[in-house]
């Protein structure tokens, strides 16, 4: 549990962080340290340079922008879990954040680190994808925005380019008659999602589905958007039988992951069950 030697720089601003990354192309960005440091201690990662962005004030906090919410990349899981703004305007995020790791981890780990690390068992990627979030990046050529659907490229690989850092995540404020749910089947050892289902259901005034989203962590190498299922739900009254029928008929997971604890075939089965549970709970909340 002793990492190899590395140089350490602490950035005071986003601009300085970007400059440091330019000066040290081999550097890794350190935020909460809850993904990177364990890998370094196990000597699975050995970056020669760390650029610590953990004290950059402008990367903190949650802002209400009216129709959107801006969440700074350094916002901890604990802050997500306890945020009043999120509880009122986007409760899916606190519900998922509360299921990450344990209390100590949630106090240190950050939303930015979680998303950039892109572990398939993480809880936030499918949530941000379901919310159709936007990721703000800063780099040597200025800033740019990437939609969540374009962000997760592969197992632990994202659209963040060398020299860039994630500065914030923007998600929409959820409208009326909208309910959300994040349900997770956790790995008993790691606590990661073997299957995590994020559901959003918006109802029309007549009770039929206006729009819906259903995305999964844990079952595939990148978060999986079950667009077929939600497309098929739109326009229907989402009673239990309809949800079950639509999931059974339309949920097709290609290339599921498997390990000694849960095979791919079993994860596909879990996805079906958790899809139904999550959609029903989101519906109930939309109706409430």
């Amino acid at each position: 549990m002793y990492p190899p030697r590395f140089d350490y720089y602490r950035a005071a601003s986003v601009q300085e962080a970007v400059q440091l990354l330019q000066a040290h192309p081999e550097a890794k960005v350190l935020a909460g340290g809850h993904s990177l440091l364990p890998m370094m201690k196990l000597r699975l990662a050995a970056p020669p340079v760390l650029v610590d962005i953990g004290r950059i004030e402008e990367l903190r906090g949650i802002q209400d922008l009216g129709d959107r919410l801006r969440i700074g990349a350094l916002t901890t899981h604990w802050e997500l879990e306890r945020s009043d703004i999120l509880a009122r305007k986007c409760p899916l995020i606190p519900e998922a954040a509360a299921q990450i790791g344990d209390r100590q981890v949630r106090h240190r780990g950050t939303i930015g680190g979680n998303l950039v690390h892109a572990d398939p068992g993480s809880d936030l990627p499918a949530v941000i994808l379901a919310l159709d979030g936007t990721l703000h990046l800063a780099g040597p050529n200025g800033t740019r925005q990437v939609a969540a659907r374009d962000f997760f490229l592969d197992l632990m690989t994202t659209a963040v380019q060398p020299g860039e850092i994630l500065t914030a995540v923007e998600v929409p404020v959820l409208g009326e008659r909208t309910g959300t749910a994040y349900l997770k089947f956790e790995h008993p050892a790691s606590g990661y999602a073997v299957c995590g289902a994020a559901a959003i259901v918006t109802l029309n005034a007549d009770g039929t589905v206006a729009q819906a989203r259903l995305c999964f962590n844990g079952i595939t190498s990148t978060p999986f958007n079950a667009q077929n299922v939600t497309d098929a739900l739109v326009g229907h009254t989402p009673d239990d039988a309809t949800i079950e029928g639509v999931v059974d008929q339309h949920l097709h997971v290609g290339d599921p992951m498997g390990d000694v604890f849960a095979s791919g075939a079993y994860r596909v089965e879990l996805a079906k069950v958790f899809a139904k549970r999550a959609l029903k709970q989101a519906r109930d909340r939309a109706q409430a």
């Binding site: 790995h187 050892a189 790691s190 990661y192 000694v260």
Partner: peptide, 9 residues
């Protein structure tokens, strides 16, 4: 295969 607390529950 279950060589750490990530895998061994």
């Amino acid at each position: 295969v279950t060589g750490s607390m990530l895998d061994y529950a």
